[in-house]
Amino acid sequence: MHPFLLEKRDEVRNPKPKEWTSKELSQQKIASYKPYNFVDGEGVRCSLYVSGCPFACEGCYNVIAQNFNYGIPYTHELEEQILADLSASYCQGLTLLGGEPFLNTEVCLSLVNAIRQRFGATKDIWSWSGYTWEELMLDTQDKLELLSKIDILVDGRFDIKKKDLTLQFRGSSNQRIIDVQKSLKQGEVILWDKLKK
């Protein structure tokens, strides 16, 4: 783990704008790739779990992926496999998780750009992030670029005190399912219109 994170482990869960950067932290590794699952968003999805997350939320369901050095390097061959898997007519889209996608922007933007080039808007892209929408709005250009190219953001740190297993696609009640494109157009957070709970 990056020495900066080790030194301040208990203090850095709420980063200042631009304090954590993909350029400094990402090792361009992935923890795993799971094609054709039903749990990481709406419909049948291909899910890419990137490596590294300094939020280290208590009760995190994927602790092993907090380490930026965990897993395997992201490769062009894997990207082509993901694109091939996404081409299935029954596959609705891609989900980015981790780890923290917004601290692995080189990996995520490479894949997102390739998806948009090949499929346009016919495949949707979801992402989970420990960052809130408001934090991302104040952060680095690469984070804003990634945000601008996805459809749905599940934002905010997992809060074990607000854990609720009945919630749709999220673990704690502070997290939101945000329609990114509508929110960017209207300049305020617009929640996903299929939200049930």
Rank of each mutant, 00 (worst) to 15 (best):
G43K: 05
V44D: 01
R45F: 04
L48R: 02
Y49K: 00
V50N: 11
V50G: 10
V50Y: 05
V50E: 04
G52W: 03
G52D: 08
C53S: 06
P54M: 10
P54T: 09
A56G: 11
G59M: 04
I64R: 14
A65Q: 07
A65G: 08
Q66V: 05
N67Q: 12
F68R: 15
N69F: 12
N69T: 12
G71E: 11
G71T: 10
I72C: 02
Y74E: 05
Y74Q: 04
Y74A: 11
T75A: 08
T75S: 15
E77G: 05
L78Y: 11
E79M: 14
E79V: 00
E80A: 14
Q81A: 09
I82G: 11
I82V: 15
L83G: 14
L83C: 12
A84Y: 14
D85I: 07
D85M: 03
D85S: 12
S87Q: 13
S87R: 11
Y90S: 06
C91M: 07
Q92W: 00
G93W: 03
G93Y: 05
G93D: 02
G93F: 03
L94D: 01
L94R: 02
T95P: 07
T95Q: 02
L96T: 05
L96Y: 02
G98M: 03
G99I: 08
G99V: 09
T105W: 05
V107N: 06
V107R: 03
C108A: 13
L109C: 12
S110G: 12
S110I: 10
N113K: 15
N113R: 15
Q117L: 14
Q117H: 14
R118N: 12
G120M: 01
G120I: 04
G120Y: 07
A121F: 06
A121R: 08
A121D: 13
T122C: 03
T122I: 11
K123W: 02
I125T: 03
I125M: 02
W126N: 10
W126G: 00
S127G: 05
S129R: 10
G130R: 09
G130I: 10
Y131P: 09
Y131H: 11
T132Q: 03
E134N: 13
E135C: 01
L136T: 10
M137A: 15
M137I: 07
L138R: 15
Q141H: 15
D142T: 14
D142K: 13
K143H: 06
K143Q: 13
L144P: 08
L146K: 11
L146R: 10
L147S: 08
S148C: 09
S148V: 08
K149N: 14
I150S: 06
I150P: 04
I152C: 10
L153D: 05
D155Y: 04
G156N: 05
R157G: 02
F158C: 04
D159E: 13
D159K: 12
I160L: 04
I160T: 06
I160N: 11
K161L: 10
K161Y: 06
K161E: 11
K162E: 14
K163C: 04
D164F: 03
D164W: 01
L165P: 02
T166D: 06
L167G: 05
L167Q: 07
Q168L: 06
Q168H: 05
Q168E: 12
F169Q: 00
G171A: 00
S173P: 01
N174W: 00
R176P: 00
R176W: 00
I177Q: 02
Q181W: 01
Q181R: 11
S183G: 02
K185D: 09
G187M: 03
